[in-house]
Design a protein around this nucleic acid. Structure first.
Lengths: 109, 109
DNA sequence: ATTATATGCAACCATATAGTTGCATGTCAA
DNA sequence: TTGACATGCAACTATATGGTTGCATATAAT
């Protein structure tokens, strides 16, 4: 049996799916139809991507009538982080990240 | 052109490669030969996995004579974290994680 | 009731990926 | 300098994956 964590990494391995996560991170509760807009692929393709994200528990769906709303679940991503980044490294890496961000003059959330 | 970040996620998408990262996280500087031990696949398979991890900048190699030592680079993993976890969520998620760890009586690093 | 809207399911195809085997190269030791 | 050791490169194969199209179902609006 393949470990369940595998689904998370497999789900993150595709750029289209990562872009979907980006959009849900920016704005929660988007419907399937909304998530289809601005992608050059069919609705069915998006549906399949979302199914994988849900199976990985990275996205949680909620039905409202005939519409399906989608929400990003950050827990599995946090687990990736804690898996390979020791408690002692976290501060240093965060500082490094902030510094790079500042140099790029990109504004953080 | 596919974004370079893609290499990171593709590299993390395989369980064998994640196990290699686990071993390098536990003990830095392992050689190829050492990394081959305890895996039921050929040396060439491990070589190919390491090549992908290096291309993704998740592993940094260092040559010592005819031996190739390997080191885990946590920076790309930190970037995954900051991409989808807002500053404001981090504390809460960390607390949740620590709580779960404590309940499982699994000892942290 | 009928039509339009929002989404699901299944079959199919092309390409990407993980693994293998065989051979080549470079470094250390006797 | 000869042999053993540590690693690299290339060709090939089977399966996984992302995408498509066609049809089905359920909810909302007229």
């Amino acid at each position: 049996m393949v470990p369940n964590e595998d689904k998370v990494f497999k789900a993150l391995a595709d750029n289209s799916r990562r872009l979907l996560l980006d959009r849900l991170h920016k704005k929660a509760g988007l419907t399937l139809g909304e998530l289809c807009e601005g992608h050059d692929m069919s609705r069915q393709a998006v549906t399949k991507h979302l199914a994988l994200l849900e199976a990985a528990n990275l996205v949680v769906p909620q039905w409202r009538g005939r519409e399906k709303l989608h929400y990003l679940n950050p827990v599995p991503i946090n687990e990736i982080y804690t898996r390979w980044i020791s408690k002692y490294e976290r501060g240093r890496l965060q500082a490094l990240h902030n510094l790079r961000q500042a140099l790029e003059e990109k504004d953080d959330d």
